[in-house]
Design a protein around this nucleic acid. Structure first.
Lengths: 361, 361
DNA sequence: TTCAGTACGGTAAACGTTTACCGTAAAATA
DNA sequence: TATTTTACGGTAAACGTTTACCGTACTGAA
């Protein structure tokens, strides 16, 4: 049987109200000695608060709901970690629900959360894209990570895709490349549009004409990167560098280059996107632009907390910038090599956050 | 303002008790017509139950707590998905807490969960290993996935490591190999002990003498696999096949073989473990033993539900068997190739569960 | 006709908190 | 001294449910 406030009050010889005040640093004054005595007794008895009762009385619970489409995605989990990291200090709890892309599950999750008096929900999505359908969130306060609503739905946190595209291509230009291929993501993705725009603008700023023949599309898979890279490399005037919209297609590009007998990165420089695990273990290791999921998670939590405190009411669209991590595939100088043993680290084994030994550009 | 049971009762002209009975299919009889009318009104008014109030009254909440050390690990998330998959049917909610390996956070999570009247907790851990310290779970019902307690702590669900080791090595033996190297995980891991035992027993059963020189150790990183593979390949009598305790070290083995100019898989056959994403995109793709995390998650949820219903009281240690997925690296016939485009699938992009086009052995 | 059983509905308590309201005594102010 | 303020504590209501208990009316059996 868990210890209740009543048992503490009996042990201390005071009323439950006094105990409650003592435990919650209430504005209502409590004698200092009495308060200390109550705290000691509560400690000794092993009291901890019943959040359920507390929430019922307060008509709100200190829980933040997180709804994600695919919890097995490394992007999503990193967002979740960022959220929890930010929320930890404020004593919030997180409920994570995985919908597996099912809109019915999503609606059910929203309804269930309402039943738990959850006031705020963060939607953590795997891909950055437009939302086609209206979402019924029952006036709940929401922040969307990676989802953009056509009608300007209030609050979203997204990566700065345009900046990322510029970052990648600018690096290749700085390395002397003038003919740079781009393997974009699928055309119906917001990220694809934006990164392509970044690609175009940075070319223009450097006086390089845009050549549509240098742009191919793929659906983020290794195989499609392989096919696209082959097309680019078989052009009459092939590129000397290829920027791929994610690390998997960049890996496909590596394979295509290998099959053509090209030397990486003398004959072909490659830059990927996302900084997934593969980027640190491929041969060559991949220079890549990070998808700042952890920071996006933090920002979304920050924003939601502001919403809950009624501090931010205007519609917000926060863009988080990634950074360029320089590794072997672009030919720039780097400290990273794949054959040297690293110091083993238990916790870092799958940690995408602190990619060590990377040169930042 | 959310609709309460009282408003439904007023709209229907009955007492709240009757509404409650109608909504919950109570044993206490309710007139069929009345019941239907109540349900219709509840539907029309948009009523959904306040789980907080319900839990307070029932002194238990339909929430399962999941505590994991590292939510960014693909293993952990797959376990979580398995849990949620099993629990969905029973109307349970999941709270997922990430501790980042911090015992203090873990204790706090347990305490918080008690405050939410959570009756059962599943611990989903990334690695399979012994737990050194006692855990204070306050008599809560717990199931441990991937954690084994020295004193025979009640309930755990773990992969059948011995079986997995046998599976991998047996496959290599069937392919005609007699001299098989093994790059084991770190010595202090339960999984390492068990898989080594599997390696030894299957060798013995096939009349192959165990040679300690053929066993190296690494801490699950690519680089350590590379170093270990080099040692094995530089033996006076090098192995013709290598079994690595995870896919990352198997990748290191691939790199080592490449650096020595060996042809894969004619000169050297390789089998990995875990069936991580890398196993499907490496060159060659990796034959590997799956870590059945999804199934482990399901099993742990099943077990916990039984505990909550007081159906299973005896200490249980459930072992889940993985399976062998045959790809290119072992030289066996396979349908899988890395250059052929697959049909794009949005949801499957990061789905480790249904590795398609694999031959099962 | 009487009595037991059943179907159905209502009343009110209870779950563990927080907090508005009230009371008392001491301290501060006039 | 008289009055106001402050410090501190207690009482009880309220949050939305569920359910034990009670009451009434009807049905069926004796």
């Amino acid at each position: 049987m868990p210890v209740t406030i009543r048992q503490v009050s009996e042990a201390a010889g005071v009323s439950v109200a006094t105990v409650s005040r003592a435990l919650n640093d209430s504005d209502h004054p409590v004698n200092a000695e009495t308060k200390q005595r109550i705290l000691d007794i509560a400690e000794k008895l092993g009291y901890h608060p019943n959040h359920i009762a507390r929430s019922l009385r307060a008509d709100r619970s200190p829980i933040i709901g997180i709804i994600c489409d695919d919890i097995t995605s490394p992007f999503t989990t990193m967002i979740v970690r960022g959220i929890q990291d930010r929320l930890k200090a404020d004593g919030y709890f997180c409920v994570v629900i995985n919908t597996d892309w099912d809109p019915i599950d999503e609606q059910r999750a929203i309804k269930d959360m309402a039943g738990y008096l959850i006031e705020g929900i963060i939607f953590a999505e795997t891909f950055h894209q437009f939302a086609s359908d209206e979402l019924n969130v029952n006036d709940k306060k929401c922040v969307f990570v990676h989802r953009l609503f056509p009608k300007g739905f209030p609050h979203s946190v997204i990566p700065d895709e345009l900046y990322g595209g510029r970052l990648a291509v600018n690096h290749l230009i700085q390395l002397g490349h003038r003919r740079i291929g781009y393997i974009n993501g699928s055309e119906d993705y917001y990220s694809s549009e934006e990164r392509l725009l970044g690609y175009k603008t940075i070319l223009k700023e450097n006086g390089i004409a845009f050549d549509p023949a240098l742009v191919e599309y793929g659906h983020f898979e290794v195989e499609q990167g392989y096919v696209a890279a082959n097309k680019l490399l078989e052009l009459p005037e092939p590129p000397t560098a290829i920027f791929a919209a994610n690390d998997l297609m960049a890996l496909g590009t590596i394979y295509a280059a290998q099959d053509k007998g090209l030397h990486l990165s003398d004959d072909l420089a490659i830059v990927g996107y996302d900084n997934q695990r593969i980027a640190t273990i491929s041969r060559p290791t991949l220079t890549t632009v990070t998808l700042p999921c952890f920071e996006m998670g933090q920002a979304s939590a920050e924003l939601l907390l502001a919403l809950l405190n009624n501090e931010a009411t205007d519609s917000q669209e926060i863009k988080i910038k990634g950074e360029l991590l320089i590794r072997e595939s672009c030919g720039a100088k780097t400290k990273d090599t794949v054959s040297a043993p690293k110091k083993p680290s238990r916790a870092d084994r799958f940690n995408l956050l602190n990619a060590q030994n990377d040169t930042k550009g």
